[in-house]
């Protein structure tokens, strides 16, 4: 019973954190909150790793005089989690720097507005009116107008204009 409860708590907690993080990223509009949601999801994944190395009634894997023959938990996931936390810190720092710059440029933290302005920027820089407008696309149909045939006839056959 207790094992079941612990099981649910641990695995449910880890998976819950991951899912909460993902839902946060999907549903939140504020980009700062999105960064936080990402951190929550990372925490969930880290928790899953730690659980993987857990065993009951075991001590930390540090050899001291008294711990000679005692059961120890798995040191590998601990090392992995250490690494992944540090990685997470680096990514979050970069994300925050980007949040700051995005805010300075677009004066908003709303992901929807940012996306709109970004699309406009890209469209402007490439000289396209809008991605979803009805302007001639790359694979537009090459149906020549019948009326144009006669005009070009002279050019192609080497005739005078």
């Amino acid at each position: 019973m207790t094992t079941d409860l612990i099981h649910w708590l641990l695995y449910g907690g880890a998976m819950g954190l991951i899912v909460i993080g993902i839902v946060g990223v999907v549903t939140l509009n504020n980009i700062f909150r999105i960064v936080l949601a990402l951190a929550i999801a990372e925490a969930g994944a880290n928790l899953l790793l730690v659980i993987a190395g857990y065993r009951f009634d075991a001590i930390a894997p540090i050899l001291t005089g008294s711990s000679a023959n005692q059961l120890m938990v798995d040191p590998v996931p601990q090392a992995m989690v250490l690494t992944s936390i540090v990685i997470g810190v680096g990514i979050q720092a970069l994300a925050l720097a980007l949040v700051v710059k995005v805010y300075q440029n677009y004066k908003t933290l709303d992901i929807g507005e940012i996306h709109q302005q970004l699309s406009t920027d890209i469209d402007n820089s490439s000289g396209v009116i809008s991605l979803l407008s009805s302007e001639q696309p790359a694979g537009e149909r090459p149906l020549p107008e019948p009326s144009a045939q006669h005009e070009t006839a002279q050019l192609n056959q080497g005739g005078d204009k």
Partner: peptide
């Protein structure tokens, strides 16, 4: 190679 409308026919051909 004639250019103009010919290229459009050519494109249609190649598709």
């Amino acid at each position: 190679l004639a250019g103009g409308i010919a290229t459009q026919w050519g494109l249609r051909y190649i598709v």
